[in-house]
Design a binder for these strands. Sequence first.
DNA 1: TGAGAGATCAAACAGTTGTTTGATTTATTT
DNA 2: AAATAAATCAAACAACTGTTTGATCTCTCA
Lengths: 222, 222
Amino acid sequence: MQNLTTKQEAILSAIRQHIRNTGQSPTVREIGQAVNLKSSCSVQKQIESLERAGRLRRSSFKYRSIEIIGEHSQQSHIIDTLVIPLLGRVAGGNPIEALQESDPELISLPTSLLPRVDQNRQKKSCDEQNFSKVELFGLRVVGRSMIDVGIDDGDLVIARQQSSAQNGDIVVALVEDNEATVKKYYREADRIRLQPANDAFLPIYSRDVRILGKVALSIKQF
Amino acid sequence: MQNLTTKQEAILSAIRQHIRNTGQSPTVREIGQAVNLKSSCSVQKQIESLERAGRLRRSSFKYRSIEIIGEHSQQSHIIDTLVIPLLGRVAGGNPIEALQESDPELISLPTSLLPRVDQNRQKKSCDEQNFSKVELFGLRVVGRSMIDVGIDDGDLVIARQQSSAQNGDIVVALVEDNEATVKKYYREADRIRLQPANDAFLPIYSRDVRILGKVALSIKQF
DNA sequence: TGAGAGATCAAACAGTTGTTTGATTTATTT
DNA sequence: AAATAAATCAAACAACTGTTTGATCTCTCA
């Protein structure tokens, strides 16, 4: 990391601040105003220096396209983020569908933590662009029936919406009485077993289980 | 929500798509090209209609400043997000300081999940703008010593950096042999007890414990 | 002191973009 | 069918912005 002149440091700082304040990079003249350079050309030269020094990049010939290199730009992380609706509570509550209609709280999580999402389904909705299509959804857990896998009362679980599951998957399921619950899924001869992860709880046996999703993540707040 | 003409729907869709693809809103002429309107004025008129209908807003007289009203803009969620460095692994690894120097993986998490962060410390760095000051940090857990509080091998814990703790807090601590570990913190008469949450593990007693942070969140991936 | 390099300046140029103008086309109403 | 309204068009205008030009200033070094 080379030494920069104080003027160049001031320019970098002005760019950072402008991006932070307005969400976009400044123009050459805005930089000039910020660092007290009267001519846009002076700024231009300094910017070229900073580019040669590898501290800046202009992504194209468009306006306001200066990026600062080597610092974590907001962009890079934001892009890899998915917005997930928090649909309600499970185990002892209402079915999830009822909760979908309202205006759910939203949280954004980095894709690096989340399971792969089917690219086609994402693409398909690119035009219509309801971009938090409920592919992933969050639920607040009530009860301690899954304590042995580390899911406790009050934890947040993020599930991927799917209607089938494999043995051993932790699923969000809807049982006969329209109650949503988080359990381990096992298909038996003529029925489904929803197995708690807590010896104090008994499994639920049912032929009429609707899988809402597979738990991908659980988040515990201390 | 009023009815819109098909042309107006097409324009809204084109704007959404352009914002999604490029991160900024389209120009009048780009919209025209997308919806097959030859004159920029035609687009202008349609945009004015959409503004009157309350579906669009132009935040200023600047270029590329169209916003779509009533849909969850990326912005609103992004703003409430903190970028957190993943510093390494705990329990049986190197001390955290050694890992800070390198180029850590980063994840962004919504502030709604995170503990309150001291506003002053945030403000102070506004000018200098090293904006992921290590206020919060993430660690990957190795070992099962905290299984009874739901922290398992491979889980991600997010901790808030602090150098003291209260009894019962789950902390990231550095013990004598420079080993970072996650344990429950108890101050005893003349020593610190670092208590695992697993009967198969014994507590660590030490007079020389350095607290690195308090665990605020744990994230489990299934 | 003086020559040269670098920084800065005012000014102008060119491309992009929002906006306006006036004519033409299309749709709707009478 | 005639008239009115709405939509669309090509063209031009003006503001913004990146870039270039040529002159002026400042500093360093011989």
